[in-house]
C-alpha cells in the first residue's frame, strides 16, 4: 500500500519538477533554438519552438560581421588571466592562514571579506580617472587586474576553507616520516591541495567571465570581452535576433558547462563556506 502511494507521488512530483525546471530554463533553450533559425523565422508569428529551417548561418555571420572571435579571446584572457593572478597571491596567503594561524588571522579574513562588500560604484570614478591617466582604458591587462582584485577575497576564502580540511595529523606524519619542508610540499601538501585549488579556479573563471560592471565601463571596441560585446546588440537598430542568439549561445555555452561541473563547489564558494 505504502509503495503504491510512493510511486504515485513520485510521478506527480517528477512532473511538477520537470515543468518548473523547463520553465526556468526556457529563455536559454529559446535562445539556443533561435540561433539556428533564419532571421525571418526568428521573428515569425506565431513563433515555432523548433527552427523550421535549421541553419548555421548566424554563427558565421556573427564572426564575419563583428569579429566575434576577438571578443571571445578577450574573455578567455581576462577571466583566466585574472584567476591565475589571484591564485598566485592568494595561495600563499590562504596557506599561511590555514596552517599557522595567529590570533589576528580571523580579523584579517574578515577584513578581506569586507573589501568584497564595497560597491563598485563607490570607486568607479577614481578608477576610471586613474585608468584614463595611465592609458589603461579599453585595455585587457587593466581589466585583468581589476577583476583579480574584485575576486581576490573570494579566492582567499575558498582556498582557506579547503586548506583547513587538510588534517594537521597528516602534515605531522610527514614530518615524522622524515620529510623536509620542501618534500612535504611536493609529495603531501600540493597533491592534497590540488582539488581545492582547481575548484576555486573554476568558480573564479565563471565569476570573471560574467562580470559586467567593470567590463562595460572600462572597455570599448578593442578590449571588450563578450559581456560588453553582447551589450552592443542592445542598440535599437534592426532586429537581428537570430544573430544575437548565436552570439549569446556562444558566450554562455562554455561557462554553462563549467558551471554545471562545479555546482557543488559553487555553493561553498559563494557563501564563503557558511553553507556546504
Amino acid at each position: 500500500m505504502a509503495r503504491a502511494a510512493t510511486t504515485q507521488r513520485k510521478i506527480v512530483v517528477t512532473t511538477a519538477a520537470w515543468i518548473v525546471g523547463l520553465l526556468i530554463f526556457f529563455p536559454i533553450l529559446w535562445t539556443i533554438l533561435t540561433s539556428f533559425k533564419t532571421e525571418g523565422d526568428a521573428i515569425a508569428f506565431p513563433p515555432s519552438l523548433f527552427p523550421p529551417h535549421w541553419t548555421l548561418e548566424n554563427y558565421f555571420e556573427v564572426q564575419s560581421r563583428s569579429d566575434y572571435f576577438r571578443h571571445f579571446v578577450n574573455s578567455v584572457v581576462i577571466s583566466i588571466g585574472s584567476t591565475v593572478l589571484a591564485l598566485l597571491i592568494a595561495v600563499p596567503a590562504a596557506w599561511a592562514m590555514a596552517f599557522s594561524p595567529t590570533p589576528k588571522t580571523r580579523d584579517i579574513m574578515m577584513w578581506m571579506l569586507s573589501t568584497k562588500m564595497m560597491p563598485a560604484v563607490g570607486v568607479l570614478v577614481p578608477i576610471y580617472l586613474i585608468f584614463r591617466t595611465l592609458g589603461l582604458l579599453d585595455n585587457v591587462w587593466g581589466l585583468m587586474v581589476i577583476l583579480m582584485l574584485m575576486n581576490l577575497p573570494i579566492v582567499v576564502w575558498m582556498l582557506y576553507t579547503y586548506f583547513k580540511e587538510i588534517p594537521v595529523d597528516i602534515l605531522e606524519a610527514a614530518r615524522m616520516d622524515g620529510a623536509t619542508l620542501g618534500k612535504e610540499l611536493v609529495y603531501v601538501l600540493v597533491p592534497m591541495a590540488v582539488p581545492g585549488i582547481a575548484s576555486t579556479m573554476l568558480l573564479n573563471v565563471i565569476l570573471a567571465w560574467n562580470e559586467a560592471f567593470w567590463t562595460l565601463n572600462l572597455t570599448a571596441a578593442r578590449a571588450a570581452p563578450l559581456t560588453a560585446f553582447i551589450a552592443s546588440y542592445s542598440s535599437p537598430e534592426g532586429l537581428f535576433w537570430a544573430k544575437l542568439s548565436a552570439a549569446s549561445t556562444l558566450a554562455i555555452a562554455p561557462i554553462l558547462v563549467l558551471g554545471w561541473i562545479s555546482q557543488k563547489q559553487l555553493v561553498r564558494g559563494l557563501t564563503f563556506g557558511a553553507v556546504k
Partner: peptide, 24 residues
C-alpha cells in the same frame, strides 16, 4: 532538473538582459 534550474545563474547579465528584452 537540477542543471536546468541552476543554468540561469551562469548566464552573463548582459545576455540575460538582452534575451529577456528582445525575446521574452
Amino acid at each position: 532538473v537540477r542543471l536546468l534550474v541552476i543554468a540561469p545563474f551562469f548566464v552573463m547579465p548582459t545576455v540575460s538582459a538582452l534575451v529577456w528584452k528582445n525575446m521574452m
